[in-house]
Write a protein that binds this DNA or RNA. Structure first.
Length: 280
DNA sequence: TTGTGTCCTTTTTG
DNA sequence: ACAAAAAGGACAC
């Protein structure tokens, strides 16, 4: 039975949130930190490490969230069209590195780089008769040389990746604490990590640290706001400054409410599909 | 074919 | 303070 609670696995994975995923015979397999997940078409999850995860955030009251974010005709349309889309709850360290890699890049390249990073520094495991590489532990990347990291095709981001891993290894960042504290404080903390600016921070907060009010403003979202919301949020330029980002985020939360992140995901998915952009 | 623009941005420089 | 440039490289057109 289709209803508002039915999860669409394909749309959720193919929405720019995760990168280390592949599909075999209608079954999705993906790396999630030190775990591998197998997800059937109907969303049944099997974990390599037998860890219980709420990958699809079933604890969220999705009916309530959809009601809450459906503030205008554009969002209503996006929600209706991609009803089963969900925010995925990822391993925070993998998410951090993924979105540092993502800056000024594209999905294909991000996936390629992350695969190389996993293969080079991660532990090889076998699951369901397939070979996988777990996502590397921070200590391993922290000890690697810049050139070794560069060989994964990440270019100038290599030093950010090494430093981010180092901050994790030295326990300068405490994800468990950041999951519990408020949006502003968590954002301030992770923006201290090199390679993490406003947009990357919002991705990490939304996709791994439980901050549903974060609303990553990338090129696409700016384009969407200009196209459909020019009356609500006036935008001056293409690339926005730090201050403009903050002001805009405040206006967005005012409009969409505390689950703005879900609205962002539905809108992003809709527009990328409209332009027939490729996913994984 | 070879060339050019585009990428889910951040940091550095002027 | 703030705009502009620089920072891989793959890929589409």
């Amino acid at each position: 039975m289709q209803n508002n609670c039915t999860i669409n696995v394909e749309n959720s994975i193919n929405s720019g949130q995760v990168f280390l995923w592949r599909k075999n015979n209608d079954i999705w397999y993906g790396v999630n930190g030190q775990d591998i997940l197998k997800i059937s078409k109907v969303g049944k999850i099997k974990s390599y490490q037998n860890i219980k995860t709420d990958f699809f955030r079933k604890r969220d009251d999705i009916e309530k969230i959809i009601k809450s974010i459906s503030k205008d005709s554009v969002t209503k349309k996006a929600v209706k069209q991609y009803l089963g889309l969900r925010i995925l709850e990822q391993d925070p360290f993998q998410c951090l590195i993924s979105f540092i890699v993502s800056s000024n890049s594209n999905i294909q390249k991000i996936k390629n780089s992350l695969e190389k990073i996993s293969k080079k520094f991660g532990e090889k495991v076998e699951f369901e008769n397939q070979e996988f590489f777990l996502f590397p532990k921070p200590e391993i990347i922290a000890k690697a040389s810049i050139n070794e990291i560069k060989s994964c095709g990440v270019g100038y981001r290599a030093k950010f990746i090494k430093e981010a891993a180092n901050m994790m290894a030295l326990k300068k960042i405490n994800f468990e604490y950041l999951k519990k504290c408020n949006y502003q404080d968590a954002k301030e903390e992770i923006c201290k990590i090199p390679g993490v600016g406003n947009k990357v921070a919002d991705c990490i907060l939304l996709f791994s640290l439980n901050k549903l009010e974060s609303f990553p403003l990338d090129r696409w979202m700016i384009r969407i706001l200009e196209k459909y919301y020019s009356d609500k949020f006036q935008l001056e330029t293409k690339s926005i400054t730090e201050k403009q980002y903050e002001i805009l985020h405040e206006k967005i939360v005012n409009h969409f409410g505390p689950y703005a992140g879900y609205a962002q995901q539905f809108l992003f998915k809709m527009e990328r599909e409209n332009y027939q952009k490729k996913w994984l």
